[in-house]
Amino acid sequence: MTRKHKYYLWAALLLLPLLLALADIYTGSVHLSFTSVTRALFHPAGGDDVTVILHRFRLPRMWTAVLAGVALSVSGLLMQTTFRNPLAGPYVLGISAGASLGVALLVLGLSPLLSFAAGSLAANTSIMAAAIAGATGVLLLIMTVSLRIRDIMTILILGIMFGSAVTALVSILQYFSNETMLKVFVVWTMGSLANVTGMQSLLLTLLVGAGVLLSFLLIKQLNTLLMGEAYAHSVGMDIRRTRLLIFGVTGILAGSVTAFCGPIGFVGIVVPHLARLTLRTSDLRPVLPATLLLGASLLLLGDILSHLPGEGGVLPINAVTAVLGIPLIIWMILQRQKLSSLM
């Protein structure tokens, strides 16, 4: 790639999320005219319906899509690099399974004791708290295990096994719960970008910001891990400390997004590959910022697509990302013949 090529490439990578963000706020399940949205965008004080829809719903949702896209893609990149596995994603450590268990325990297990209306603010907040507790619990367990186990592949297998075991527990809880609560839980597992507003949005911004900043500080270590742990050790890297830091950052990024938006699949696996394919390198110095920009773009696109039914309702974001992500993965496999050459 020439210098000029690179310049255009990065300009495109920067413009893409901006354009998609604009497209995202100009479209939605309710049809609003272009001029009214533009007016409302620059006059937030106006009390009409358009201003309310824009500032209470569309802007926060757009921002949540950006944050979730960034967090899932960056944590996916961290996991693929650490495990040197092209199919690793933000959830290989069992973080989403942990969050599901937290939510399942709350919604399905404790619901007879508590009584809250599905969709209310109290319900949303307690679901988020439960998800954070579950994700943190699993993360702490995996970190403890990783201190004792040397081989990174063993940790990967344990993470997957642990996730499956937790998912099985969730199934048992589902089996014994009543229909209303089951629906609340199933809707949570479908993911939603619409429930993060106000203070929650600020909190999510802080968490994702911190996670991304820490990822950038870990670039030197992550790059060294591309060579394998034996090499990383031979140049003086503290493998255990680095691993703990990477797991911690992944926990913050993937855990917070899962807590606030539910599990959102495929974005975290696909986007790092897209970034590497576009830049034709594994060097994290360009790949990390590109992953961040492409991650925001992909989830913004997912959000736009999820509103395609218009007044008919909103498609669950988790289904949309799967529909978007799976063809991308298949395309990359067919293009490169073998997935391992994608790393």
Partner: peptide
């Protein structure tokens, strides 16, 4: 070497970690 998309120069430069 584990599969990756680093160049020869980038791979050798990894040694400068310390």
């Amino acid at each position: 070497l584990p599969v990756n998309r680093l160049t020869v120069r980038e791979t050798v430069a990894m040694a400068r970690y310390p």
